[in-house]
């Protein structure tokens, strides 16, 4: 199959950026979207041009490196997938595909489709942990976790930190990302000691990084590659209120 790409090219964070058209003429439906970009890039290098830069690594949907807006959708069409898990069989022969980086004030563009998501690490630094030091912890079975709680905590912990929730949100909010971590640790007994400080500090850092607030569009849940539910945002709000009272 053949497709036409309209790809955002931007030399560095100071460059204005622009769309550039590329023809991908030998596309197999079994290729992943990133493999299709690989083929386009081989062509560009052979012509002496600079290949399209994009973040990627594991290519199996778990490292959270890849992420781009494809036809206005975070990680492209389909649900529950990262960009690396999108296959060209999701497109039709002759399609025009628009490819852009995540756009958010807190995610400055580094080059082309690569953005700086270190703001998410700084939110984690503000409190996304239990302060358990190496050694000096009880036996694993000394802390009982009811299965439903373990399952609910896992659902939240599955977040891969890709930033799709931020990219698709009209307010560029990182609420789902923050909620996932706060929720995981507020459900588990291990997270209780620092429960209040954690939610307050992580939210304060989120605001400082210039992420917006939540206005309940639920777009984040729809685009999350791990299907993390907005009910964790509900729990985040509950935790914040609880901490303030």
């Amino acid at each position: 199959m053949k497709v036409t790409l309209k790809v955002w090219r931007q030399k560095d964070k100071n460059d204005e950026g622009r769309f550039v058209d590329y023809a991908a003429d030998e596309v197999s439906p079994d290729m992943s979207f990133l493999e299709m970009l690989d083929v386009v890039n081989v062509g560009l290098v052979k012509k002496g041009e600079i290949p399209i830069a994009f973040d990627h690594d594991c290519r199996e949907g778990i490292c959270g490196s890849c992420g781009m807006m494809i036809n206005g959708r975070a990680h492209g069409p389909g649900r529950g997938i990262a960009t690396c898990q999108l296959h060209m069989r999701s497109f039709q022969d002759g399609d025009e595909i628009v490819v852009e980086p995540w756009r958010a004030q807190a995610f400055p563009v580094i080059k082309d489709l690569m953005v700086d998501r270190t703001a998410l690490d700084r939110i984690m630094q503000a409190g996304g942990y239990t302060s358990a030091k190496t050694g000096g912890v009880p036996d694993g079975n000394a802390i009982l976790v009811p299965k439903p709680a373990a399952d609910e905590a896992f659902d939240a912990a599955a977040c891969i930190g890709c930033g799709a929730c931020v990219a698709i949100c009209p307010n560029s909010s990182a609420m789902l990302f923050v909620a996932a971590k706060v929720s995981q640790l507020s459900i588990l007994p291990q997270g209780q000691a620092e429960r209040e400080a954690r939610v307050e500090n992580m939210i304060a850092q989120m605001d400082e990084e210039l992420f917006g607030g939540c206005s309940n569009t639920y777009a984040c849940e729809a685009e999350c590659p791990k299907g993390i539910s907005v009910r964790h945002i509900g729990r985040l709000n509950h935790e914040l209120l609880r901490a303030k009272l």
Partner: peptide
């Protein structure tokens, strides 16, 4: 010790209905 350490960090290991690992 690794299992104990990871549990303390909040790693959501699979549990049975009694809450044990």
């Amino acid at each position: 010790c690794i299992i104990d350490q990871c549990v303390a960090q909040g790693v959501p290991f699979a549990r049975d209905y009694a809450g044990y690992l």
